[in-house]
Design a binder for these strands. Structure first.
Lengths: 138, 138
DNA sequence: ATAGTTATTGCACCTGGTTGCAATTATAAG
DNA sequence: CTTATAATTGCAACCAGGTGCAATAACTAT
């Protein structure tokens, strides 16, 4: 896994704690919250400090191995290899739907042409009402 | 100001603390951070607790009097009457450019058609490189 | 296998923001 | 103007996340 190699390549050390954290993210298809990753690590190796986890996640993010998306209060982490997409989060039921990457192309073009601004859209999180919840009263 | 009236209409009380908080937001064109609002209030009325400010901001937001945008770590507040727009924040120099509201219409349509998802885009914050910083080395 | 270098860990503390609760205060009614 | 009552305040404690630092552990060269 390139995540493990990345540490070595950057002159960083591959500790048991870091191995666990990488495993947590690679071992699931889901998008994990920091809390879930801390839980995963601590059940397998009690005593690991949360700051260790946060620091490692930041390293992985900076190296491009892991992506972090923010929706209001919580951040979710997912590994970079599984392809990029955006996230539609229903504000009523909380369910998340993956969304094709290219829906942001028109905006990317628009803000570049209008404002000369080069926006980067990766793993954007959009909130709203999902198909099921649109029908219900509200 | 409808913000002041709003409290009464909802059976809420119009305290000096709340008056100050509303003044802070109405008295400026800028987008204020929570910290700035707390500072504004506390210089005029020392002793006001931050939780009072946060609770009032939440009330104003729920009532639609105030909008809150989140960019990564910080939240900015602005009153709802000044018209809606999005924010382009340069990740290099930190400068913010206002962006027309309608750039999100294509996405709104796309996710509705493709996923049946009704997304709401208000005061979105997009990060990237502004016109000036695009030229510089990176 | 050993010693030396240097990154990493856990700790304790800090930050912005949130919450439960007893004391206070704005408001409505008399 | 007084009283009643319910909303609000300030407090203190809490939460997720982040930081400086001394002790520790991973890697490197021998």
């Amino acid at each position: 896994m390139s995540c493990m190699v990345m540490f070595k390549e950057k002159g960083l050390k591959l500790t048991p704690q870091r191995r666990l954290i990488v495993n947590a993210i690679h071992g699931t298809e889901a998008h994990l919250t920091a809390e879930e990753i801390i839980g995963y690590v601590q059940t397998r190796m009690p005593g690991v400090n949360k700051s260790t986890v946060y620091r490692t996640l930041q390293l992985l993010e900076e190296a491009g191995c892991v992506y972090k998306s923010e929706l209001g209060d919580q951040s979710i982490y997912h590994h970079a290899e599984e392809g990029h997409h955006h996230h539609l989060v229903c504000s009523r039921c909380g369910r998340t739907v993956d969304c094709a990457e290219d829906v942001f192309l028109p905006i990317e073009r628009a803000v570049r042409d209008k404002y000369g601004f080069q926006a980067g859209f990766k793993h954007m999180v959009m909130s709203g009402l999902c198909k099921e919840c649109r029908g219900k009263a509200g």
